Deep mutational scan, measured.
Amino acid sequence: MDVFMKGLSKAKEGVVAAAEKTKQGVAEAAGKTKEGVLYVGSKTKEGVVHGVATVAEKTKEQVTNVGGAVVTGVTAVAQKTVEGAGSIAAATGFVKKDQLGKNEEGAPQEGILEDMPVDPDNEAYEMPSEEGYQDYEPEA
């Protein structure tokens, strides 16, 4: 019985440690998101679009440190934060509304985080759909 109880105690310690790591990862992701939003706020009209992409990228980098179902929630929060940063930029006159959601080359930025393969159960990952990809044929 002692062996059984000791095993359960060790398992509990492992769960607590994993929860603490997840909590730490979420806190880091939130900190990076805040950094990115402050970065966007300090940019001029020309830099705002690039700044919004930076927020998304920093958040995406930190999301990889967070495991399990938390990833889905962090990704949703990050996307809403990026959308909010863009709205703030438009409201303050840093950028025109028609410039939001495009990178410096004018290509749409939507789907940055949505296409990231995420499995809350950590069982399997699927690649994003290939609808947006084109076949590449090298020139002879």
Rank of each mutant, 00 (worst) to 15 (best):
Ala56Phe: 11
Lys34Trp: 08
Thr54Met: 15
Gly25Tyr: 15
Thr75Pro: 01
Ser87Trp: 15
Gly132Ser: 04
Val16Gly: 04
Ala78Gly: 03
Gly106Arg: 08
Thr75Phe: 12
Gly132Lys: 11
Phe4Arg: 00
Val26Phe: 15
Gly41Pro: 01
Gly41Tyr: 08
Met127Ala: 02
Ala91Glu: 04
Gly47Phe: 15
Glu114Lys: 11
Ser87Asn: 06
Ile112Phe: 11
Leu100Ala: 09
Tyr125Cys: 04
Leu8Glu: 00
Tyr136Cys: 11
Glu20Cys: 08
Gly47Ala: 13
Tyr133Asp: 15
Lys45Pro: 01
Lys60Ile: 13
Ala29Arg: 03
Val70His: 00
Glu35Gly: 03
Asn122Asp: 12
Ser87Asp: 04
Lys21Ile: 09
Pro120Arg: 11
Val95Tyr: 15
Ala56Thr: 12
Val63Ile: 07
Pro128Gln: 05
Val74Met: 11
Val3Asn: 10
Glu35Asn: 14
Ala107Ile: 09
Val77Thr: 02
Gly14Pro: 02
Glu28Asp: 08
Leu8Asp: 00
Glu123Leu: 10
Pro117Gln: 11
Lys34Phe: 08
Glu114Ala: 05
Glu57Ser: 05
Thr72Lys: 12
Ile88Gln: 06
Lys32Cys: 03
Val71Thr: 02
Val77Met: 13
Val49Ile: 04
Thr72Tyr: 02
Val52Gly: 02
Glu20Asp: 06
Val82His: 05
Leu100Thr: 08
Ala107Gly: 12
Ile88Lys: 02
Asn122Gly: 02
Lys21Phe: 07
Lys10His: 03
Asn122Thr: 07
Tyr39Asn: 05
Ala78Arg: 12
Val77Trp: 14
Met5Glu: 01
Pro117His: 03
Ser9His: 12
Gly51Ala: 03
Gln134Cys: 14
Glu57Cys: 05
Ala85Cys: 14
Val49Pro: 02
Val77Leu: 14
Val48Asp: 00
Val71Lys: 12
Phe4Met: 04
His50Lys: 13
Val70Arg: 01
Pro138Thr: 05
Ser129His: 07
Asn65Tyr: 10
Ala85Met: 12
Lys60Asp: 00
Lys6His: 05
Thr54Val: 13
Tyr136Asn: 01
Ala11Gly: 08
Lys58Leu: 03
Glu104Thr: 12
Pro117Ile: 04
Leu8Pro: 00
Lys60Thr: 06
Gln24Asn: 13
Lys45Phe: 07
Ala27Asp: 03
Ala30Lys: 03
Pro108Trp: 14
Val118Asp: 12
Ala76Pro: 02
Lys45Glu: 00
Ala78Leu: 10
Leu38Cys: 02
Lys60Tyr: 07
Pro120Ile: 10
Ala17Phe: 06
Gly67Cys: 12
Val3Leu: 15
Ala19Asn: 02
Val95Asp: 03
Glu35Ser: 12
Gln99Val: 13
Ser129Leu: 06
Thr59Asp: 00
Val70Glu: 01
Leu100Phe: 01
Ala89His: 06
Thr44Arg: 01
Tyr125Ile: 13
Gly7Val: 04
Ala76Met: 08
Val66Phe: 13
Asn65Glu: 07
Val74Ile: 05
Thr33Ala: 09
Val49Arg: 08
Lys34Asp: 00
Asp135Ile: 14
Gly84Tyr: 11
Val70Asp: 01
Met127Tyr: 11
Leu113Tyr: 14
Met5Lys: 06
Met5Thr: 01
Lys45Trp: 13
Val70Pro: 01
Ser87Gln: 11
Val82Ala: 14
Val26Ala: 06
Asn65Leu: 07
Gln99Leu: 12
Gln99Ser: 08
Thr33Tyr: 03
Glu104Arg: 04
Gly67Arg: 14
Val3Cys: 03
Val16Glu: 07
Ala85Tyr: 14
Ala69Ile: 11
Lys43Arg: 13
Ser42Val: 11
Ser42His: 15
Ala91Cys: 09
Lys32Glu: 01
Lys60Leu: 06
Ala17Ile: 13
Val52Glu: 00
Pro128Asn: 08
Gly47Met: 07
Lys23Arg: 12
Gly51Pro: 04
Lys43His: 10
Asp121Leu: 08
Ile88Val: 14
Met127His: 06
Lys97Arg: 14
Ala69Cys: 11
Thr33Glu: 00
Val77Asp: 01
Asp2Glu: 11
Gly73Thr: 09
Lys6Cys: 04
Val71Gly: 02
Lys96Val: 08
Glu20Arg: 13
Thr22Arg: 02
Gly106Met: 10
Val70Ser: 02
Gly86Phe: 15
Gly51Leu: 10
Glu13Gln: 13
Ala85Val: 09
Val40Cys: 06
Ala85Asp: 02
Ala107Met: 04
Lys43Gln: 15
Val77Tyr: 03
Ala140Val: 10
Glu114Met: 02
Val77Asn: 01
Val71Leu: 03
Lys6Val: 07
Val15Phe: 05
Thr44Leu: 11
Gln99Gly: 11
Gly36His: 15
Lys6Ala: 13
Lys80Glu: 01
Tyr136Gln: 07
Glu46Met: 15
Thr33Trp: 08
Ala76Gln: 15
Pro120Gln: 14
Val82Trp: 11
Val52His: 01
Lys102Val: 08
Gly68Trp: 14
Gln24Leu: 12
Tyr125Gly: 06
Gln79Tyr: 10
Ile112Leu: 05
Thr44Ala: 03
Lys34Gln: 00
Lys97Val: 03
Glu137Val: 08
Val15Ser: 03
Lys12Trp: 06
Gln62Val: 07
Asp98Ile: 07
Gln134Gly: 12
Asp119Arg: 00
Glu35Arg: 08
Val63Trp: 14
Gly106Ile: 11
Ala56Trp: 12
Val82Asn: 03
Lys21Arg: 15
Val63Glu: 00
Val95Asn: 11
Glu61Arg: 07
Ala76Arg: 08
Ala11Asp: 00
Ala56Pro: 01
Val40Arg: 02
Asp121Ala: 13
Lys97His: 05
Gly25Pro: 02
Ala27Met: 08
Lys45Ile: 10
Val37Trp: 11
Thr92Tyr: 02
Phe4Ile: 06
Thr59Cys: 12
Phe94Tyr: 13
Thr72Met: 14
Glu110Gln: 13
Ala53Asp: 10
Gly7Ala: 14
Tyr39Phe: 13
Gln62Asn: 14
Pro120Met: 10
Val16Ile: 05
Ala124Pro: 02
Ile112Arg: 06
Gly47Arg: 15
Gly93Thr: 05
Val26Ile: 05
Val118Asn: 13
Val40Ser: 01
Ser129Val: 06
Val52Thr: 02
Glu137Cys: 11
Met5Arg: 05
Lys32Phe: 08
Pro108Thr: 14
Ala76Ile: 10
Asp119His: 15
Val3His: 05
Val3Trp: 05
Lys32Thr: 03
Lys45Arg: 10
Glu130His: 08
Gly36Pro: 01
Ala53Ile: 14
Gln62Thr: 13
Ala30Cys: 06
Val37Pro: 00
Gly93Pro: 09
Val74His: 01
Lys6Ser: 06
Val49Tyr: 09
Val15His: 00
Val16Leu: 08
Gly84Val: 11
Thr33Cys: 02
Ala17Lys: 07
Gly67Leu: 14
His50Arg: 10
Val40Gly: 01
Met127Gly: 06
Gly132Arg: 15
Gly25Met: 15
Gly25Ser: 10
Val71Arg: 11
Gly25Ile: 09
Gly25Val: 14
Gly132Glu: 09
Ser87Pro: 07
Val40His: 02
Gln109Asp: 03
Lys80Thr: 03
Tyr136Trp: 13
Ile112Val: 11
Ala29Lys: 06
Glu126Trp: 04
Ile112Tyr: 10
Pro108Tyr: 10
Ala30Gln: 03
Glu46Gly: 02
Val74Lys: 01
Gly41Glu: 01
His50Cys: 09
Gly41Lys: 02
Val63Tyr: 09
Lys12Asp: 00
Gly68Cys: 01
Pro128Asp: 08
Gly41His: 14
Gly84Ser: 14
Glu35Phe: 12
Val71Tyr: 15
Lys58Gly: 01
Gly31Glu: 03
Glu28Lys: 08
Gly84Glu: 10
Thr44Asn: 01
Ala91Gln: 05
Ala89Asp: 02
Ala140Ser: 12
Ala19Tyr: 15
Glu57Ile: 12
Asn65Gln: 05
Gly84Cys: 13
Asn103Pro: 08
Thr59Val: 08
Glu28Leu: 07
Ser129Thr: 11
Met127Arg: 10
Lys23Cys: 10
Ile88Glu: 01
Asp98Cys: 14
Glu20Ser: 05
Val15Leu: 11
Ala91Asp: 03
Pro117Lys: 05
Val15Gln: 00
Glu83Leu: 07
Lys32Asn: 02
